[in-house]
Nucleic acid binder design. Structure first.
Length: 117
DNA sequence: GGGCGGGCAGTCA
DNA sequence: ATGACTGCCCGCC
């Protein structure tokens, strides 16, 4: 059955963030790409900030393209994100995460069939 | 409402 | 590492 539903940018972003597996991370820019919104990395951060907590998004799995946590080192959010990532077995040193170890590299063919948009 | 300016959990050269 | 550039939301005329 076709759905007439029009996916909003926020919905697409939420969807992509939701399918990042535990123990993996994805940069803002990649999230935007997979959501079909190339060049809109900043909008991803904005969307995450505005997303209702009830959505239970694994926001902590989104980091910047340099492989770092995008919060000031003394902030609560920085601490939270560090802890959440460690709970999933990801090594975090001073906000740095090894992309070569933890970058999510989805099989694109599978992904295309997974995304509803 | 419409328009403009500032700010941002980013990215790339 | 630094700076230029971006897309878009939000608050204020």
């Amino acid at each position: 059955m076709y759905s007439e539903h029009k996916w909003t940018a926020v919905e697409k972003i939420s969807f992509v963030v939701n399918i990042i597996p535990a123990g993996k991370v994805l940069p803002y820019g990649k999230v935007a790409d997979l959501a079909g919104l190339p060049g809109r990395a900043r909008y991803v951060s904005r969307a995450l900030k505005l997303a209702p907590s009830e959505a239970n998004l694994p926001w902590h799995r989104v980091i910047n393209s340099a492989g770092k946590i995008s919060f000031p080192k003394n902030s609560d959010l920085f601490q939270q994100q560090t802890e959440l990532l460690r709970l999933e077995g990801i090594e975090v040193n001073q906000g740095n995460i090894s992309l070569s170890k933890y970058l999510w590299q989805p099989d694109l063919a599978t992904l295309v069939m997974t995304l509803p948009f």
